[in-house]
């Protein structure tokens, strides 16, 4: 796995990294030194998201030691916003003439996939899903299907960036909180809107465990625009499909984000979960279409290390004891795309 996120997640010991706090309602990634991963002649042309995506993918492949991937599958909500904005501005400024090809090429959603494939000389299955809040989860689902059909392993990832302009546009339609909020205090400020985020997270998935395996992904359920009661019913059905009881879940990682417009989904979930320990993750990465990948990355780390990065959760009064056999992730994107992902040891 590899993750470039607003936290210090890319290098070093995750459990020793301090929490990054921010009060601007936008969590931007901590960027690594890309020169160690991308040749200078390619780097100069790449926009931010491409650098993030390609670097996270390369680091993930190094981490897994699995070699050239059997499939490259990603999800993104918006692709490279920086290139899209540049291309659109050029169209306006130069009257649809003298347009630079690079921002157009890089604004396509599958640009990162193509670059990974070229860098790895990988000619296998290559697909990008752009399904708003289901983008990463559909990449995950496709990866599972590819593995079931015989792919030896897949490189599966998610990437999204937030630009200043896009942040402003979304703030005008109420996506973000009006008042500046410290991300550490996110859950104490229940009001309309949340904080924005971004990130690039990649996983090497294989059908059989290896010495580098962090966790097993054993369940995935997607619900589109469910009624509030559909969340508890959906979770019960999901657990039944997995032949599990609520008590079998060691920890639930939720996408709670301080947005009063959608808090009722989490309150509904609380009714089913009872006393099962919960941890939120949006104060770490912010809200974006593929933030579910951050949750999977976090859960996999917890599962492998059998410990929590407690320094990242100063709002928690106490923590569950180790012994994480199953971690459930529940997330949704502004009340529309709801996802359950189950990880096992």
């Amino acid at each position: 796995m590899a993750a470039i996120t607003p936290q210090h997640s890319f290098e070093g010991d995750l459990f020793a990294q301090p929490l990054r706090s921010n009060t601007g309602n936008l969590l931007q990634v901590t960027e690594p030194d890309y020169k160690a991963f991308i040749p200078p002649n390619s780097l100069r042309r790449m926009s931010r998201l491409l650098k993030m995506g390609l670097t996270a993918a390369q680091q993930c492949l190094r981490d897994s030691s699995l070699g050239v991937p059997g499939a490259i599958i990603t999800g993104t909500g918006k692709g490279s916003l920086q290139d899209t904005e540049r291309f659109l501005k050029d169209i306006r400024q130069y009257g649809e003439k003298a347009l630079n090809p690079t921002p157009f090429i890089q604004s396509t959603y599958n640009a990162v996939n193509g670059m990974i494939a070229v860098a790895q000389q990988c000619t296998t299955y290559n697909n990008t899903f752009v399904h708003r809040g289901f983008s990463f989860e559909h990449a995950l689902l496709d990866s599972i299907l590819q593995l079931q059909e015989g792919a030896p392993h897949t490189l599966t990832g998610a990437l999204d960036e937030m630009s200043e302009e896009h942040f402003y546009i979304k703030s005008r339609i109420g996506y973000w909180k009006k008042e500046p909020v410290d991300n550490v205090q996110l859950y104490n400020t229940l009001s309309p809107g949340t904080i924005a985020g971004e990130g690039a997270v990649f996983f090497s998935l294989s059908a059989t465990p290896t010495a580098h395996t962090y966790a097993h992904i054993t369940g995935l359920k997607l619900l589109y625009k469910p009624a509030v009661a559909g969340i508890s019913a959906g979770l019960s059905a999901f657990l039944q499909e997995q032949q599990l009881a609520v008590e079998d879940i060691s920890l639930v990682i939720t996408g709670r984000n301080g947005d009063s417009n959608f808090e009722h989904f989490y309150t509904e979930l609380d009714k089913v979960l009872g006393t099962v320990p919960q941890l939120p993750f949006k104060h770490l990465c912010g809200e974006y279409e593929t933030s579910g990948a951050f949750a999977v990355w976090l859960a996999a780390h917890i599962m492998k290390a059998q410990q929590l990065p407690q320094q990242w959760f100063p709002m928690q009064a106490d923590f569950p004891a180790a012994g994480f056999q199953r971690i459930l992730i529940y997330n949704h994107f502004f009340g529309e795309q709801h996802t359950f992902v189950l990880l096992e040891r």
Binding site: N41, R45, Y94, K97, A98, P101, T102, I105
Partner: peptide, 17 residues
Amino acid sequence: LGLDSIDSLELMVLLER
């Protein structure tokens, strides 16, 4: 400078702009 084919397109755009 070791430029490539995409750079040549960008240089064409430079001349036009």
